[in-house]
Every structure is written in structure tokens, then in C-alpha cells.
Amino acid sequence: MDSAYVAFYPDAAFPGAAGAVGAFARLAVACGVRHLVLLADRGAAEAERCEQAVRDSGAEWTIVRAGFITQNFSEGFLAELVRAGVVALPAGDVAEPFTDAADIAEVAVAALSENGHAGRIHDVTGPRLITFADAVGEIARATRREVRYLPVTPEQFVSSLTGRGVPVEYATHLTGLLVEVFDGRRASTTDTVERVLGRPARDFTEYVRETAATGIWDADT
């Protein structure tokens, strides 16, 4: 194996990610891997430590940074919140360049399979900034349902997650990450998708239209 894609679950910004990524990177290099492509969380301190661990491994490296992934709205607890009609998050009115998972995947594949990506940071974003209120509004219009965004405190968010059966440790770490990155530091877009893939980044509206047609956001019965 010459190259490896490195992604930490549940997120490169979670505590302990840098240690695990560093250990994996060193093992990979010892086994002959020459190029590591890391998926990192855009703007998070622990993710930056993951990036440094990969750089220090001795392998050629490429960093693929991504922020809030568009598909989060149709997976897990966020899909449940959309179906329930109230999307409560500790994100205030911050704007985010929601990034489509397909764009992230294709940039990562290019970095793994093509020349010219070593030593580069690919900061992947969507084509425009959107507030969570605007994003939820688009979902509401596409589904023709009443769905609203509700900004909440970190404590309220932890309680809402644990009330839905999410483990306390995960809920606490996730909330800490959201509070960290939803302070405006990611409120910018890049041309990475167009530069690497030769096409525009996928817009949030396209995702909403296609996802609404699947029925995944239909109200709970």
C-alpha cells in the first residue's frame, strides 16, 4: 500500500484524536506507506494537532479540511429534529459554508490517486455562506412543512441530546466542538472544489431538493 486515507471517528476535533492519528501515521510509515491524506475539521484545535501529527510522521501528506457537512441534516439526531419541526443547535446566527460530502470525497480521491497534491491543504467548502436559520428555512420550503431553527445554550443542547439517548460523553464533546467552531471562524468560502475537481462546489439548495424528494424529512407519525 502506497497511500492511505485517515479519518478519525467520530471527528478529528474530538479529544484524543491527535494521539490516535499520530500513532496510526507512524505505523503506516513503518509499514511502507508513503502518502497520507487526512480528513480534518476546519478550524478546530484538536484537528490542527491531528494535522501536525501527520506532518511529523515522515510521510508525504495532504490535508483535506471540511466544516459542517451538509448531509448532517439528513442523518442521525439532526434528521430527527427536522422531522420533529424544531432544529435546536448552539450555533446562534453564525454563517457556515455547508459542505457536501460528495465534494469532500472527490477531493480526497483526487489527493489519493493523482500527482501534485503532496504538501497541500485542501480547504473544502460549499459555494456560499448560509445561517442555520436560512438552511432550515430552505428545508421547510422544500418539504412544505413547518420547520424552524431554535438557537439554544450549550447546556440545553446537551440535555436535548441525552434526552434522545445520546451518551453523555459524546453529547458533551459534540457540544464543545460546536461552541468552539461556530464563533465565526469558518464564515468564509474557498474555490478548492472548482480548483481541484474542475467543477463548482455543490450548492445546499441542490442537496435540499434531492433529499426532500426521498421523504426522509417527512413528519414523524
Rank of each mutant, 00 (worst) to 15 (best):
Y170A: 13
F8K: 14
P154T: 03
G76C: 10
A102H: 07
V152K: 02
L174K: 08
R34Q: 10
A17W: 09
G116M: 00
F77C: 13
Q52K: 08
A79W: 02
E114T: 02
R141M: 10
V54N: 05
C31H: 15
D11T: 12
P167L: 05
T175K: 03
H122N: 06
L197C: 04
H35N: 02
S57R: 05
G58Q: 10
L81K: 14
G76M: 03
A135P: 04
A84V: 07
P127V: 10
Y149H: 09
E96V: 13
V158E: 08
V208I: 06
A84N: 12
V166I: 12
T175I: 07
R148S: 08
A79F: 03
F98E: 04
A110I: 00
V29M: 09
S159M: 05
D220Y: 09
I63Y: 01
G137L: 07
G163F: 04
I69R: 07
S188M: 02
A108N: 05
E75S: 12
F204Y: 09
V109E: 02
A84E: 15
V181R: 05
A111E: 00
G198M: 11
V158Q: 10
A135W: 00
V147R: 00
E60K: 01
A79V: 12
G85N: 01
R144H: 05
Y5E: 10
Q52R: 14
D103P: 07
V152S: 09
E106K: 01
P90A: 01
C50I: 10
I69D: 06
R185W: 02
A30Y: 11
F14H: 15
L89T: 07
L150H: 11
R164I: 05
R145S: 07
P10V: 03
P200T: 12
R164S: 05
R55G: 03
V168R: 14
G198V: 01
T125W: 12
A101C: 11
P151F: 01
P154L: 05
D203R: 15
V33G: 09
E138N: 04
A30S: 15
A88I: 08
R148M: 00
L89V: 06
Y149W: 07
R195Q: 14
E194N: 14
V152Q: 13
G137C: 05
S159K: 13
A135E: 01
E114V: 03
T211P: 10
